[in-house]
Amino acid sequence: MRLHVITDDRHSQEELAAKIISIKDIVDFIHIRERSKNVSDISDLISRLLIGGVDKRKLIINDRVDIALFYNIHRVQLPSHSFSVKCVRSRFPHLKIGKSVHSVQEAVQAEKEGADYVLFGHIFETDSKKGRTGRGIGSLADVKAAVHIPVIAIGGITEKRLPEVQTANPDGIAVMSGIISSDCPAEAAARFACYVKGDSYEKAL
């Protein structure tokens, strides 16, 4: 499984950059999902990351295709309210495109339109979607069985829940608060990586 980390839109550019730089060699992908920040703020964040040695190939820009293109970042994540995969694929065929989906039908449609992978959730109830029941492991397994592209699970995934998530055989997991909101993101990321990649804690660090 691949370990994706998603930013939580709760930190300044400086704070967030420091957190991301601390995990850059531990995780597989880092989604920049800062909905309250403007173009200038996100540009400042990306500049800090690149100066700090973050591999551009690990960065995934959520929604803002324009920012990805400006910085020559080749990975984008399209939320449900964003452009269609088909539209982005037709104009920018070089991009790696992920699509956020919430059902088997949406996942199948994303695959038909040319998505490289889907991000499915939320699996469990999470603070970012309080009061909304998670879709569960069964739904994750259904999506995994319905498409041929990678399926990344997201939503309320904690270290304790990883064995349960793995029963659905996702291609990766995405974690937000469990890593980015941690007092020590590197240690939290290393613990997730130990399970996801099967490495020792020391090797992950």
Rank of each mutant, 00 (worst) to 15 (best):
I123Y: 01
V88R: 04
K129F: 13
L78D: 08
S90K: 15
E125N: 11
S103N: 09
S128K: 04
H74C: 07
K99T: 00
H122I: 06
V76L: 12
H94G: 11
T133S: 14
F124N: 04
Y71S: 00
I97H: 08
H94I: 04
Y117W: 12
H81I: 14
A110K: 04
E106N: 06
R132W: 10
G136H: 03
E125D: 15
D116Q: 07
Q77M: 11
A141I: 01
L140A: 05
R89P: 07
P79L: 14
V118C: 02
G136K: 03
S100D: 07
R89N: 05
R135L: 15
V88C: 10
L140R: 00
I73A: 01
H122V: 09
V76F: 08
P79Q: 11
R75L: 04
G138Q: 08
P93R: 13
R135M: 04
C87L: 15
L95M: 06
G114V: 02
F124E: 01
C87D: 09
C87M: 15
R132T: 09
L140W: 02
V104I: 15
H81F: 15
V85M: 09
R135Q: 06
R135N: 07
G131K: 05
C87H: 15
S139E: 10
Q77S: 02
Y117E: 08
Q105M: 12
F120L: 03
K96E: 12
G131M: 14
K86F: 10
K129V: 07
T133Y: 09
R89G: 07
H74P: 00
V101I: 13
K99W: 02
D142A: 13
G134S: 08
V88T: 01
V88S: 02
V108P: 03
D116Y: 00
E125T: 13
L95G: 05
K112M: 10
F70E: 09
S80K: 14
S103H: 10
R75D: 04
K130C: 07
T126E: 05
C87I: 14
R135E: 13
I123D: 05
F124M: 09
H74A: 13
S82P: 05
A115I: 04
A141P: 04
A141K: 11
I123C: 02
D127C: 09
G121N: 06
A107D: 08
I123A: 03
A115M: 10
R89H: 13
G138S: 12
A115Q: 01
C87W: 15
N72P: 03
G98W: 01
P93V: 09
G136A: 01
G114D: 13
G134C: 08
K96V: 08
C87Y: 14
H122L: 10
E106Y: 10
L140M: 08
E111T: 07
G131R: 12
G138I: 06
G114S: 10
T126H: 09
G98T: 05
S84I: 06
L95K: 04
E106D: 12
G138K: 14
T133V: 12
R75Y: 09
V88E: 01
K86N: 08
L69R: 12
R91D: 10
H74T: 10
S90G: 04
S100A: 06
A110P: 00
I137C: 05
D142P: 01
S82A: 15
A110N: 05
I123E: 10
F70Q: 03
S82G: 03
G134M: 11
F124W: 11
H94F: 09
D116I: 01
E125I: 07
D116P: 01
E113Y: 02
L140Y: 03
S84R: 09
H102Q: 07
H102A: 15
D127N: 11
S84M: 05
